[in-house]
Design a protein around this nucleic acid. Structure first.
Length: 156
DNA sequence: GCCAACGTTGGC
DNA sequence: GCCAACGTTGGC
């Protein structure tokens, strides 16, 4: 199993929005970055865990824990001219963008980005790298355990 | 609202 | 294939 961190702007979809969806499940559509797409398409597996991270809001940070519940499949919004995520270049035969689906496992104590930055054990996280903008980043097993055990207070 | 950092585009 | 220009992300 692999671990991830997935960013969502609360205005787009917050942890509470996810919590009230049918099955507490949502497609992670709208990723338009090749590196993040490749993580979803090539590396994510059903059963992988991910931190649900709020970005762009008043206070960024980890808000919950999710589980990957589907393989990656073509992101429908790339074909939808009415969607802000519309991309004219891909075709149905050659889709460019993919998404998995995630299910909420638990809403957690909110762990602010500023708190993550103070932890030496987490210094290598891509999330904390200077200038990082990737919306999906891998989390190492020991980083996952540390955040769950020491910061959130749940068993990893 | 600002701006640093980064990815993408497109002309050559 | 290079690289300047542009658009976007996201913390502050």
């Amino acid at each position: 199993m692999h671990y991830w961190l997935m960013k969502s702007e609360p205005a787009e979809m917050s942890i509470d929005d996810l919590a009230i969806r049918p099955g507490q499940t949502a497609p992670w559509f709208g990723v338009r970055n090749y590196q993040a797409r490749n993580f979803m398409r090539d590396a994510m597996r059903i059963g992988d865990r991910a931190f649900f991270y709020h970005s762009g809001g008043a206070e960024p940070g980890i808000a919950g824990i999710c589980e990957v519940v589907s393989p990656a499949y073509p992101d429908a919004t790339q074909f939808d001219a009415a969607s802000p995520y519309f991309d004219p270049k891909p075709s149905a035969k050659a889709p460019r963008w993919f998404n998995v689906e995630v299910r909420l496992l638990s809403k957690t104590r909110f762990v602010p980005l500023a708190e993550l930055r103070t932890q030496p054990q987490l210094a290598a996280m891509p999330l904390l790298a200077r200038g990082n903008r990737l919306s999906i980043t891998p989390v190492a097993r020991d980083e996952w355990r540390f955040i769950c055990d020491k910061l959130i207070g749940v068993k990893a």
